[in-house]
Every structure is written in C-alpha cells, then in structure tokens.
Design a protein around this nucleic acid. Structure first.
Lengths: 262, 262
DNA sequence: TAGAATGGCTACTGGTGAGTATGGTCCACC
DNA sequence: GGTGGACCATACTCACCAGTAGCCATTCTA
C-alpha cells in the first residue's frame, strides 16, 4: 500500500459537516486569544467547499479561499498541503454523512425498504449540504491517482451498500424484484444530481427533496390501483414561499398539505 | 437581446452527433484535395468533446485538441473562436438529440407514459453519447453570461417537456399521480448521472441503460401484487457480451450477480 | 528573559495555457 | 504568371495561479 496516503485530517472526528455553520472567520476569535488549530483547519475546508460550490473547483483559486477567510494564501497552506487535498477533505466530509447513515440503519430491524429509505434521506441531505458539490463532483481527473483511488473506493462502498439493501429487500419481500445494480445507479444518480441544481436558497431542504424522490421511486410511474391518491406517500411536496398552489394532478385530495414537520 | 449571441455553427444541420464516427483526422484527406470546412469544423468539435469527456474541460488544453487532430492550435482557432464556444457547441450537439426526441414523440397518439418512455430512451442514449459529458456538465461558471443563459434556457425546455408529459400522463391516467416537478428532477437526474459513470467500453448502450432505468421508475420499489416477476418490464437488463442470454425475469434472476465489470 | 514554537505576511518563482501576430504555401481564377 | 484568399505553422505575449522563500510578530516554555 502506498506510504503517503492522504491524511484525512482527523478521520475519527464526529464529521465536519455536522458542526454548526458559523460563517464568520475564526481569525477574529483568534485575536481574542481563542486559538484552536483544528477549528481553523475546518474553517479552511468549509470555506473551500463553499467556494467550490459556488464557482467550481478550477475557477476557485486559493487566494479566493484565503480572501473569504480574511487571510492570505500562505496561511491557507499552513493548514492544508495543497489544493487537491482541500478537495479531498471536502469530499470526505460529505461522504462521511452517508457512511454514518448506513451504520445507523444497519442495526434496525425494519424491512429493507424502510432502511433503504432512511439511508436515502440522509443521502439527499448530504448531497444538498455544503459539501455535497465536492462529494458528487470530485473528479478523477483533478486528483492524484492515490486520492482518486480513495474516492473511488468510498463511492463504491456506498454503491455496494445500496445494492445490498436492494437485495435484502427483494429477499424479505419489501422491494419488488429488480436489477440491484441498475436500480442503485438510478437511485444514486437522481440523488447525486441534486448537487447540480440545489441552492441553499431553495424552499426545500435536502431531506425533503429526498423524501419526494423516495415517493417517486417507491410508487413508480405506472398507475397503482391498490394505492389511492389519498396515500400519504404520493402527496405533493410542500412548498414554503412561492406558488403555494402546487396543483398536483388528480382530484385535489392529493394535496393533503403535508403536515409540516419541523 | 444581445447582439452577439453565440453562433451555433450550422444550427439546422442534421445533428453533429448523428454523423458517422470517423476517428481519423480529416486533414489527411485535405491533403488529398478534399476540403470541406464544415467537416473539419465538426471534427474539431468532436475532438473537443472526446477530450472533455476523457480529461474534463479544465484539464483539456486547446493544444491537446489540436494534437488529437494532428494540427496546431491556430488551426483550431481557425474553426472556432475560443474554448468556451467549443464547449457550447458540444453542449448543443448533445441536447439537440433530446429536443429531436420530443419533436418526434409529440405527434404520437399513445398514452403519455409511453411517449415519456420514448423520450427517456433517447435521453439516455444522448447522455451516453460522445457529447453527453458536455451536455450534462457544461457549467455556468465556465461560460459567459450569454452562453450560460442559452444553456439554461435549453435545459429548462427539456425539463418543462418532461413535466408536461408527466402532467398529461396523470391526466390521461397512464401515470400515477405525482408531483411533476420533483418527478422530472428525479428522472432527469438519474439519466444525467449516466454521463458521470458511463464509458463507451461498457457492455450496455445508453438506450439499454435508459431502458433499465425506465423499468425501475415504472414499477417502483414497493412490491406490486398485480405484476408478476415474469413481467417483461421488470426483467433484469440484458447484457451483450458476457452472459449473452438475456434470460428475462424470474426467480433467481433477481439476484443476477451483477457481473462486476472490471 | 532567552529562545523555541506558532501563526501569519510580503514578495517572489515557475509553469501552464489561452489567445495572437505574422508569414508562408497552395489553389482558383483571371 | 500574377493576384487574392483559404488554410495552416512558427513563435510569440500575457495573465493567472499553485506553491514557496524568507521574514516578522506573538506567545509559550524553561
């Protein structure tokens, strides 16, 4: 195995994405004697994620990232070794969420379809998160073979996890027989794509989008005589601000004004 | 409206993607007195698409593209005005396929669900084509506001087309009531994502992948008592080379030990 | 209080790649 | 047999940006 495999910062840390989302530069706090290298390092990574998200990896210079933090480029290099590593760390921060989702559901005793849905909800939330762009778009071509291999392995792990849940669901009867491989591709693709169009300004959260997608995948397009429009799983997604009338086809009963949890 | 909207080369040409796929440089032919500016221009665009596809937009220099054609950079600039336009042209070449699919199906008298499926089949083929990467990945951030707006408009047109088919399907009863917006996102996302993982070496064509996805979307994950496993729509996807027998549906096929490519 | 970390800055290097100035060659047509 | 234009190459310019050298200030430690 390669001796210089990329360091993941603190691999066992609870997850960068999970922390509270302070947009302010911690350098100000540093001046107030509060210094914590790890906090700053994470701020660098988070700033990078935001910049990549907004302008793309190649259109973001380390000067941009430094400027966002009100420091200079060498300061950024004080916390990360290079730009590539920055992308890698963002990727890891994003995917860690999904891996956690798999760990959490593994112990549940529910049918596989429900466990799969729980995973997909987390998946959607992760993709719509600050690190979603990096997780989804980190390209082989932009990374060294080492890191590329790492990323590929982690992606494959997620893919295999979904396939496994599908197989289990087919076995326990909670999922209609299908080709696990292609189905996993379709599910992951739909969710990954969220990173391409989702902006935080959107009226829905990532989990809500995932919920809507799950409904689509669950029911399917072909009419289901056994499920009425009243079924809550095919309710229209709720919208917060704009055209509140989402006029979903059919009677109107389907509206049901999804009880706004949260 | 902006005076300098990007020229699309020959907008009414049958579609660049449709032509035969000659990998050879036409400059050799040129030496043999056969000169056709348009043919060369398309060769440039196709070479660009191939390079973008393989290495990404930012990792591809115009020198690379020129080298692939056995010419020099100024020659490339003789046919296109800049790199950005190259990306734009590739995008247009890809999306034109999908627009054609909508035009073709518009006249059909079949239920909307079938028309939608026809469109999605074309969609999948287009995304897996040489120009798929460019179509799917052309980023706002890499393009001038002008071109970005153009691309956004074309993408929106496709999106709206899918939503319309969904609404029609809900109305004519061929599609189970759903939220057209989110469903369109899910469908398009799954198909778009093909561009991220598909390589021509794959054993399936784009249309075959689309077919498999359609089956997933059509039936849904939740078990359907009214559809047996024998139903052809939930057959495992056929593969060409390896297990050549398409061995449709049925018991053990569900496992299908998805031949771990590579 | 020396001196060692620590954290940050200014000011650079070196490479890459988009785009161009200029000029040569071949052909068509007069 | 010369002239103009289409086509393509050599050989640049210029800007941007990743990454670094070296120095300064502050804080911690002995």
């Amino acid at each position: 195995m390669p001796s210089n495999r990329p360091k993941t910062g603190s691999p066992q840390a609870p997850s960068l994405a999970a922390r509270e989302n302070s947009a302010a530069s911690p350098w100000r706090a540093s001046r107030e004697r509060l210094r914590d290298r790890e906090v700053k390092r994470e701020a660098v990574i988070r700033a990078a994620a935001r910049a990549f998200n907004r302008k793309g990896y190649h259109n973001t210079s380390l000067d941009d990232i430094a400027a966002a933090l009100e420091v200079t480029k060498p300061t950024v290099y004080y916390y990360v070794s290079n730009k590539e590593q920055l992308l890698f760390e963002c990727f890891v921060a994003g995917i860690e969420e999904i891996r956690a989702a798999f760990r959490d559901t593994r112990s549940l005793a529910t049918p596989a379809r429900e466990r799969l849905q729980a995973v997909l909800r987390h998946y959607g939330a992760a993709v719509a998160s600050e690190f979603g762009w990096c997780m989804v778009r980190a390209e082989d071509q932009d990374l060294s073979p080492d890191m590329s291999a790492h990323i590929k392995a982690m992606k494959s792990e997620i893919d295999q996890g979904i396939r496994r849940l599908l197989r289990e669901g087919i076995e326990d009867g909670s999922i209609h027989p299908c080709d696990p491989k292609m189905t996993a591709f379709a599910l992951a693709g739909a969710l990954n794509w969220i990173a391409h169009w989702y902006r935080e300004s959107q009226s829905m959260t990532g989990a809500e989008i995932a919920e809507a997608f799950i409904a689509v995948f669950d029911i399917g397009l072909r009419p289901r005589p056994e499920i009425s429009n009243e079924d809550p799983t095919c309710r229209p997604v709720r919208r917060q601000s704009k055209s509140s009338s989402s006029r979903p086809g059919a009677r109107r009963s389907a509206r049901s004004k999804a009880p706004s949890r949260r």
